[in-house]
Simulated assay, not measured.
Amino acid sequence: MVFHTDAAQAIGKIPFGAAELDLVTVAGHKMYAPKGIGALCVRPGVPLEPLVYGGGQEHGLRAGTENVALAVALGTAAALAAEELASGGHERLRALRDHLHHRLATALPGRVHLNGPETARLPNTLNVSIDGIAGHELLGATSAIAASTGSACHSGHHQPSPVLTAMGLPACRGLGALRLSLGRWTTTEQIHQAAHHIISAAS
């Protein structure tokens, strides 16, 4: 049996080793490479069946020619992400994320609920539901922050996240979900500003 791991959200965010995994998908834009480039890491010996048969320059796995510029950009982004991880950048993001969560929970006592586990999660994202207001309503009440109520592929639909629903959360909690993402250059001041605008919109 061959096992595929979609590591698009993890690569560049947390230490990750793919040596013992069969197939690992990497999405470039998730670690600051241009959109339109990705990679599939294949463990030696794992057979692949091409979707589109191609020439020998692609080892028979695909047709056409690779976009060299985007491939170089992906490699550069991966190297920079590795340097950031080595310097503890993910720990800095985790501290900022937890600080944002604390600010929201303190200002809105009893209303802020973490969607997901306390510890086993990515350091750069905070998914919370705030009682009394739907996620899209909160974002509509302020234009000062850029956030989402779910994944980009489901944008525009005001329905509970299927992931949160599968986790057993009620519809009201799913509709109230707000996903806040931090980036490599996020500052403490920006965390304070985001907390202020979210609290004001939810009050």
Rank of each mutant, 00 (worst) to 15 (best):
Q57M: 14
M31A: 08
G56L: 15
G56W: 11
L23V: 09
P47N: 07
E49K: 07
V24C: 08
L48H: 03
V42F: 03
E49W: 04
V24W: 04
M31G: 07
Q57S: 14
V46S: 08
Y53M: 14
A33E: 06
I37Y: 00
G45T: 04
M31F: 12
R43N: 05
G56S: 12
C41G: 08
L51I: 15
Y53G: 15
Y53D: 15
V26H: 00
L23Y: 04
G36C: 06
I37F: 00
A27N: 08
P44G: 15
A39W: 07
V42C: 07
G45F: 01
V46N: 01
E20A: 14
E58C: 13
Y32V: 14
T25D: 06
L51E: 09
L21D: 05
L48W: 07
V46P: 00
Q57G: 14
Y53T: 15
G56R: 14
E58H: 12
E58M: 13
V52W: 03
E58I: 10
D22N: 01
G45V: 05
M31S: 01
G56V: 13
A39I: 07
L48M: 07
L23W: 05
G28L: 08
E49F: 07
T25E: 08
G28K: 06
P50M: 12
P47G: 07
G54E: 00
A39N: 02
P44H: 13
C41P: 04
P44D: 13
G28W: 01
G38Q: 06
V42E: 01
Y32D: 15
E20G: 08
I37H: 01
L21N: 05
P47Q: 01
R43E: 08
L51Y: 10
G38V: 13
A33C: 12
A27H: 05
K35S: 14
A33N: 11
Q57N: 14
D22F: 03
G38A: 10
V42I: 11
L23E: 00
P47A: 01
L21G: 02
V46T: 06
A39S: 10
E49V: 14
P47F: 05
I37G: 01
V52R: 04
G38K: 12
G38L: 13
A39C: 12
V26I: 15
R43M: 04
G28A: 09
R43G: 05
G36R: 02
L40M: 10
P34Q: 07
Q57W: 12
I37L: 06
L40N: 09
L48P: 06
Y32R: 11
P50N: 10
A27R: 06
A33T: 12
D22P: 02
E20W: 07
V26E: 02
G55I: 02
L51S: 14
A27D: 09
